[in-house]
Structures are given as C-alpha cells and as structure tokens.
Amino acid sequence: MRRFFALLLVMGVAWLMVLAVAEMPTYGQPNPTHNAVMERYLTRGPEETGAVNVVAGILADYRAYDTLIETTVLFAAVAAALLALGEGRHRGGAT
C-alpha cells in the first residue's frame, strides 16, 4: 500500500518535472537568453580573481561566501556525526 502511494506521488512529481523539461531551452545549445553573468565570469574572471580556472575563481572569490558555508556544512556533518555517535570509542592501540 505504501509503495503504491509512493509510486503515485513519485509519478506526479516526475510528470511535473517532465512538463518543465519539455519547455526548457534545448540541451547543449547556448541559452537563448541571460548569458550576461556567465560571459562576465569567462571574460573578466582571470583578471579579476587571478585564477585561470574560472570555476575556482567563482568558488573562492565571486561566491566565496557560499564556499565558506559549504565548508561549514561539512563541519556541521562531522559535528553532528560525532555528537550522535561519539568519537574515540576505539581506544585499543593494538595492531
């Protein structure tokens, strides 16, 4: 029963997504609109950030705040896991 409802729900979600997908710009072609941000990153990125790897430039400079929080997510996960499980339960030093 649960599976049936899950299937129903999932099919609904998937159907919505397909609706959206059908309308989206064609894959692999340049987006017909709004490329200004990307253009700027590619043309002026190395000069503005000093990184030729534009992805790194975005990560650590244009969107460095996101990356800080991303690091924090990892930190949070470690903290959460340690809070739940507790570290150092293995104290046996024997090989």
Binding site: N31, N35, L42, V55, G57, I58, L59
Partner: peptide, 14 residues
C-alpha cells in the same frame, strides 16, 4: 558555463 559547475561542487559536498 562555469557557474553550475561551481554550484554543484558545493552541492556535492552537501
């Protein structure tokens, strides 16, 4: 486009 790639690096860590 470098931006989705950069975003998904973050997403992967999440």
């Amino acid at each position: 486009n470098p931006l989705p790639t950069a975003l998904m690096l973050t997403g992967i860590v999440v």
